[in-house]
């Protein structure tokens, strides 16, 4: 029974990780490419880490919760790097399919 739960979590996680990277590879411009890795990949790796925590907690040696630390860390850092990257993108004025916000590029000149 537990194996089925673990297998489900691992497959879900791997699926999302793959979809995130697929988004990175096939979406049309820089800003849309940013969405895949920040959301799908983070949740995917999170699901696999939860699976790992359950797997090692049930085995020998009592609860093993340090995987939660990596999950938490990824959930905090992924949006920060995404924000910095899109800020850098706006700063360099990468072309995008969405009309660029006038306010940002105007004020960032100084």
């Amino acid at each position: 029974m537990l194996d089925y739960l673990l297998a489900f979590l691992i497959l879900l996680g791997a699926g999302f990780t793959f979809i995130g990277s697929l988004g990175l590879a096939r979406l049309p411009d820089f800003y849309t490419r940013l969405h895949g890795p920040t959301k799908a990949t983070t949740l995917g790796v999170g699901a696999m880490l939860v699976a790992s925590a359950i797997h090692f907690s049930v085995g020998e040696g009592g609860p093993s919760l340090h995987e939660l630390l990596v999950t938490l860390f990824l959930f905090i850092t992924a949006p920060v790097s995404a924000h910095l990257l899109s800020k850098a993108g706006l700063h360099l004025r990468l072309r995008s399919r969405a009309p660029a916000p006038g306010k940002a590029s105007g004020e960032q000149r100084d």
């Binding site: 800003y31 849309t32 940013l34 969405h35 920040t38 959301k39 983070t42 959930f75 905090i76 992924a78 949006p79 920060v80 995404a82 924000h83 899109s86 800020k87 993108g89 706006l90 969405a98 916000p101 306010k103 940002a104 004020e107």
Partner: peptide, 28 residues
């Protein structure tokens, strides 16, 4: 708020104005 926006519905927070009154968000 910016981190929440980045992790939820098809949106990434892209830029915060220096006076901290506007947040520019990119939606997929």
């Amino acid at each position: 708020l910016a981190n929440t926006i980045s992790l939820t519905p098809g949106t990434v927070s892209a830029w915060l104005s220096p006076d901290r009154r506007t947040l520019i968000v990119h939606g997929l």
